[in-house]
Design a protein around this nucleic acid. Structure first.
Lengths: 194, 194
DNA sequence: TCCGGATTAGCACTTGGTACTAATAGCAGT
DNA sequence: ACTGCTATTAGTACCAAGTGCTAATCCGGA
């Protein structure tokens, strides 16, 4: 016996996780055991066959593609909005958004949520961020639900410029604030709401 | 004949592109033709069988996952770095990073590159961005190669604080600048390079 | 009516399995 | 040495979703 059964099964699971494309035959060669042993191992560990593995991996892609297409457009779900006035979006922080070392969300994700919200709230097809000052007040962790509130300020910043203030909170505690100086293509007078 | 052959094959291709999980039998029911006809159609259009389709979709996923794991860690490839002094990273803008309407890169991607670079250049395990002021000077388009240069300033911002200046250029033209106030966990004296 | 492309049917064979049964090997305890 | 037990291996029938090939049938136009 080259390797205890438990050890082999553990390695088998790990191996298939990073390479789901291996057939039982290839696996049997890798561990120098019979194909049947591999089948028993998969059975005991509840690891599905090649075709099923590929199916789940493939379906994961399809879902991801749909998701990323949507979430990248706005980065955080906009749940309420009054154009040219205010907007609110929600962003659920997952393991994907944090530093591995300390579990704290990377700043650019919070910025992305706020920036996208600032762009969205502008009643303009081509709004762009020109300048921004931001503050990261408290660290955000995986599992936190970040609520960003954007408010369009009425002060004039000159022609074609608008100021949007964004504050993001987790459990009513402010974790991020930002001032966004936005560029408009269409210049509207004060109070004009299209 | 419910539908001309050409039309059916066109629809078949489109259908399988958005849903590669359909078997020939399911397809034959969908088009109310025999399974053999579907097989001939696939043959003529060079569309592989279900299992092969899933294999390619799955392998695409695996590649994507590896890629996103790396690129998300830093966002832009760091090509040169002297810890606690300066760093340089390159970020190639693709269609994925721009607004569909005007082809201009979303601000948060430029911010992400600069912010990640600022974090990386800090000679500290737990560096975090506290505050930042940024300027978007010129629009960046798909296909542009953005070069970000970070410089650690020696001015003191108080204990455990460091200022990092980042300037990003496309073809030697500055498109973005940012001041990043970073938080350190270890407080080093001036000039001390660990 | 005959021709030709389109369609359908049928059969042998392939991959990568499941499900099940049976044989064998290896070792531990008594 | 014999028994008991687990692990391993072997072998068979069967399945899904195909490929590859041959042959039959349908159907519309010259």
């Amino acid at each position: 016996m080259r390797m205890p059964k438990k050890e082999r099964q553990r390695l088998l699971g790990k191996l298939l996780e990073e390479n789901p494309f291996l057939t039982d035959e290839e696996l049997s060669e890798h561990f120098t055991v019979s194909v049947q042993t591999i089948r028993l191992d998969r059975l005991e560990r509840g690891i599905p066959e090649l075709r099923e593995r590929l199916k789940t991996v493939a379906s994961r892609t399809m879902k991801e593609e749909v998701k990323s297409l949507h979430s990248d457009e706005v980065f955080g779900d906009i749940v309420d909005m009054e154009l040219d006035k205010r907007a609110l979006s929600i962003f659920d922080v997952t393991e994907d958004h944090v530093f591995q070392r300390n579990g704290i969300a990377r700043g650019h994700h919070l910025f992305a949520q706020a920036n996208s919200l600032a762009v969205a709230v502008m009643n303009d097809d081509l709004a762009l961020t020109v300048k921004s000052t931001i503050n990261f007040l408290k660290p955000v962790k995986a599992g936190d639900r970040v609520v960003a509130r954007a408010e369009v300020k009425k002060e004039s910043l000159g022609e074609k410029r608008t100021l949007v203030m964004v504050a993001s909170t987790v459990n009513d505690e402010t974790v991020f604030t930002g001032e966004f100086h936005m560029y408009r293509t269409t210049d509207r007078k004060q109070g004009e709401l299209k």
